[in-house]
């Protein structure tokens, strides 16, 4: 990691998004204390963590593989934190029950982790991390191992939980949909650096550079000459497929030939080959056609129209 400077506000749901190897997990481990920075400082609530070992930070982690202790039952797993702090048995078991109820696992206390489903394990890991009342909760790809439906349900639940508890959640994921749907703010990591930080909507609508545009959503990335054809000369630009409309070829600002179509259920994604002003440069533009509209057949000449504000100029790298 190199030159990463990041400030996360208290009570925020913050996502760190990036492909694997981009440094997002390392950043998380710097916060939890499992990695030490070679240079630079980690501060939690203003306090320098340079000399504070992981077990003394008010930070807890939900691990990617959950790291539940296989030899302990669910209740003992959850009450591990209080046990370490020397809380008496009755109090800590009662506390564990309370947290299990919070994650909807009442009555599962006697089971061993091996007897739980993936989603249940995830909740146990969550309860175990929350029992220590951390000021920051770190989640390392917490939903990665779950199937799609369960993942969506857990996304809502996590979001709800975070709002209820008011704890800062820092969330690592490589799934841009997850990051955008859950987080208040998102940091996009690329090759050990932060490519962009900002609210989810801004990241989506105004990617700062080609990498973000490419990684978040599925924007059309226009090289400068092509961008000029779309009315934004002199720079690279991004253009969302859903911001484009198919119009009759006659009199359209830009025309092109349909080269492919992919049916997505909620709409159809068309690939349209267009030429720039000089006719030399060519590009394939993705256009999302809503389900209600008619989809032109392959090989048809179509026109493309857009709102001027949708073309977003950006940094080349």
């Amino acid at each position: 990691m190199d030159d990463v400077s990041l400030t996360i506000a208290e009570g925020e749901f913050f996502a760190m998004l990036g492909p694997s190897g981009s440094g997002k997990t390392t950043c998380l481990r710097l916060i939890s204390g499992f990695e030490k920075p070679t240079s630079g400082v980690v501060r939690i609530f203003g306090e320098d963590m340079g000399a504070v070992p992981p077990n003394q930070r008010q930070v807890n982690t939900v691990f990617q593989d959950y790291a539940l202790f296989p030899h302990m039952n669910v209740r003992d797993n959850v009450s591990y934190g209080p046990m370490v702090r020397g809380v008496d048995r009755r109090t800590r078991l009662a506390e564990a029950e309370r947290l299990l109820a919070l994650v909807h696992l009442d009555g599962f206390g006697d089971r061993k982790p091996a007897q739980l489903s993936g989603g249940q394990r995830q909740r146990v890991a969550l309860a175990r991390a929350l029992i220590n009342r951390p000021r920051v909760l770190l989640l390392d790809e917490p939903l990665g191992a779950l199937d799609l439906k369960l993942r969506e349900a857990m996304q809502d639940e996590l979001k709800k939980l975070q709002r209820e508890l008011g704890i800062t959640f820092v969330f690592v994921t490589h799934d841009q949909g997850e990051a955008l749907s859950m987080a208040d703010r998102v940091a996009v990591f690329s090759q050990g650096r932060i490519a962009q930080v900002g609210p989810a909507a801004e990241i989506y609508a105004r990617p700062a550079n080609r990498f973000v545009a490419d990684f978040v959503g599925s924007s059309n990335i226009l090289p400068p000459l092509m961008a000029a054809a779309f009315g934004a000369p002199g720079a690279w630009a991004s253009l969302r497929p859903e911001a484009l409309r198919i119009v009759p070829a006659e009199g359209a600002r830009i025309r092109g030939r349909v080269t492919g179509a992919r049916y997505l259920g909620a709409g159809t994604r068309l690939a349209v080959a267009v030429s720039g002003h000089s006719g030399k440069e060519e590009a394939e533009i993705a256009v999302l056609v809503p389900a209600a509209q008619m989809v032109p057949s392959e090989g048809a000449m179509v026109g493309i129209d857009w709102d001027t504000g949708a073309v977003h100029p950006m940094e080349p790298a």
Binding site: S32, F34, P53, P54, N55, Q56, V59, N60, T61, F63, Q64, D65, A67, L68, F69, P70, H71, Y80, G81, M83, V84, R85, R128, A129, N132
Partner: peptide
């Protein structure tokens, strides 16, 4: 014994000896 078990124990506030006794030894049994 996965590294993450040891990290989870430390993360939850356990020192080295506690981790040894409550996590490593039972798992290495």
């Amino acid at each position: 014994v996965p590294q993450s078990m040891l990290e989870a124990s430390a993360d939850l506030g356990a020192g080295g000896l506690r981790t040894l006794w409550s996590v490593i030894l039972p798992l290495a049994l």
